[in-house]
Simulated assay, not measured.
Amino acid sequence: MTHTGVFFIPSSPNAPNILGPLTERLRSVYGDEAIPIGRWGLEHKLMRDTPSCLPASAHAPNPAPRARYVQFLSMTNHPKLGFVYASEDDEQTQPSPPTAATEAGMGKTESGMIMSAVPIASSSEIFRHFVRCCEPIWCHRHTVTVTGTVYDVGDFRVRLGEVRQTQPQARPRGTIMEIEWRGPSMIAAALAPVSSSLGHDGQNRDVLAMDVDGDIDAAMETPYIPTEAEIQLEYEQMSNLIREFWTKIYNQNDSTNKQLPATTREAILIPDVGRETKQRISQRRQPGWQERENRRRRKRREAIALDRSWGGFSEKQQQQQDDEDEDVDAGVDLARQYMELFRFNR
Results as ranks from 00 to 15, higher is better:
1 M>W: 06
3 H>N: 10
6 V>F: 01
7 F>Q: 07
9 I>K: 00
10 P>N: 06
13 P>H: 01
13 P>R: 00
17 N>P: 01
18 I>Y: 02
19 L>F: 05
24 E>Y: 02
24 E>D: 13
25 R>P: 04
30 Y>A: 01
33 E>K: 14
33 E>D: 09
35 I>K: 14
37 I>R: 04
39 R>F: 00
39 R>E: 04
39 R>K: 08
42 L>M: 13
56 A>D: 15
56 A>R: 11
56 A>V: 09
59 H>L: 02
66 R>V: 14
67 A>C: 06
69 Y>P: 02
70 V>N: 08
71 Q>D: 10
72 F>E: 03
73 L>K: 03
76 T>F: 00
77 N>D: 12
80 K>V: 09
81 L>Q: 09
84 V>T: 05
86 A>K: 13
87 S>I: 01
88 E>S: 05
91 E>V: 07
92 Q>F: 09
93 T>Q: 10
97 P>Y: 11
103 E>T: 04
105 G>A: 03
110 E>R: 10
112 G>T: 09
113 M>L: 13
119 P>C: 04
121 A>S: 15
124 S>T: 10
127 F>W: 12
134 C>P: 01
136 P>W: 09
141 R>Y: 03
141 R>I: 14
142 H>V: 12
145 T>G: 13
151 Y>P: 01
153 V>I: 12
153 V>C: 10
154 G>C: 09
155 D>F: 04
162 E>T: 09
162 E>A: 12
163 V>N: 01
167 Q>R: 15
174 G>D: 06
176 I>S: 05
181 W>V: 00
182 R>M: 09
185 S>N: 02
191 L>K: 00
193 P>C: 01
197 S>H: 09
200 H>M: 13
209 A>W: 07
210 M>V: 12
212 V>Q: 10
213 D>G: 01
214 G>Y: 03
216 I>N: 06
217 D>A: 12
219 A>L: 10
219 A>M: 06
224 Y>A: 13
227 T>F: 04
231 I>S: 00
232 Q>A: 05
233 L>Y: 08
235 Y>M: 05
237 Q>D: 05
238 M>L: 03
240 N>D: 15
241 L>H: 04
244 E>Y: 02
257 N>C: 14
264 T>S: 14
265 R>A: 08
269 L>P: 02
270 I>F: 08
270 I>C: 08
272 D>L: 02
273 V>I: 14
274 G>R: 11
276 E>V: 05
279 Q>W: 03
280 R>L: 07
283 Q>S: 11
286 Q>P: 02
290 Q>F: 07
293 E>R: 06
297 R>H: 06
299 K>N: 12
303 A>R: 07
311 G>K: 00
313 F>K: 13
313 F>M: 12
315 E>K: 09
315 E>A: 15
319 Q>H: 10
320 Q>D: 12
322 D>I: 04
323 D>V: 14
326 E>R: 10
329 D>G: 04
330 A>T: 02
333 D>F: 04
334 L>R: 13
336 R>T: 02
337 Q>F: 01
340 E>N: 14
343 R>P: 03
346 R>L: 11
